[in-house]
Design a protein around this nucleic acid. Structure first.
Lengths: 101, 101
DNA sequence: TTCGAATATGAATATTTGTTCATATTGTAA
DNA sequence: TTACAATATGAACAAATATTCATATTCGAA
């Protein structure tokens, strides 16, 4: 079979796909997204639950916000984050379900 | 709401999940897995289609083989690789479908 | 057994990435 | 306004990662 005879992903498409998975390729982000998939959380709350520094959490949230996986809502002093991409959450849930082989 | 009141992922579970997505978090591996999801391919064939060096392809296949996402079959001089994890392929297909927003 | 083709592997390197630390910003209450 | 709490941001650093290059291995044919 010759190269041109089958469908392979165009480079930009492959990068788009990889970018989606890259967001889920870090344990910290997995934990954050899993938490946010259950309820809206403030930055400080996430940091407390996951035992991370406020700064580390904020950096990751910034990353997730830039690629539109999470959004936030201000309430006084605090920012409440929540998921903004049901499809990615769906991928996450499936992986969690199948994680134990 | 207090930390212990909601379900968050155990550290090892989060790492398992992240490990799955890490395999899909690189454009090269995405292209390789997408190709293999359609047909069994030799190393040289993959390298030709994806315009990569034989060595780079072999390294990535080694990575994918170690985590049991692909398997191979020897036929004379050549090794034919194919997918060995339908669940991961399912995740990949979904992401490809949804890649264009 | 020798040769050549296909594939694997190890070391080196450049790039990416996650965290920390220090500091800046934003909003609230006094 | 001042002071404080919550969050964001930039620089620096260490660790992880993908590729390249050179070389090793494996198999079939002669």
């Amino acid at each position: 079979m010759k190269p041109h005879e089958h469908a392979f992903l165009a480079p930009e498409k492959a990068e788009q796909v990889a970018r989606i998975f890259k967001a889920l390729a870090d344990p910290t982000r997995v934990k954050i997204l899993y938490l946010l998939s259950q309820e809206e959380c403030s930055v400080g709350h996430i940091a407390e639950v996951l035992e991370m520094t406020q700064s580390a959490v904020s950096h990751q949230l910034s990353f997730l916000r830039h690629i539109r996986l999470v959004k936030n809502r201000r309430a006084g002093n605090m920012l409440y984050y929540s998921c903004d991409d049901e499809h990615v959450i769906s991928l996450l849930r499936q992986a969690v379900t199948h994680a134990d082989h």
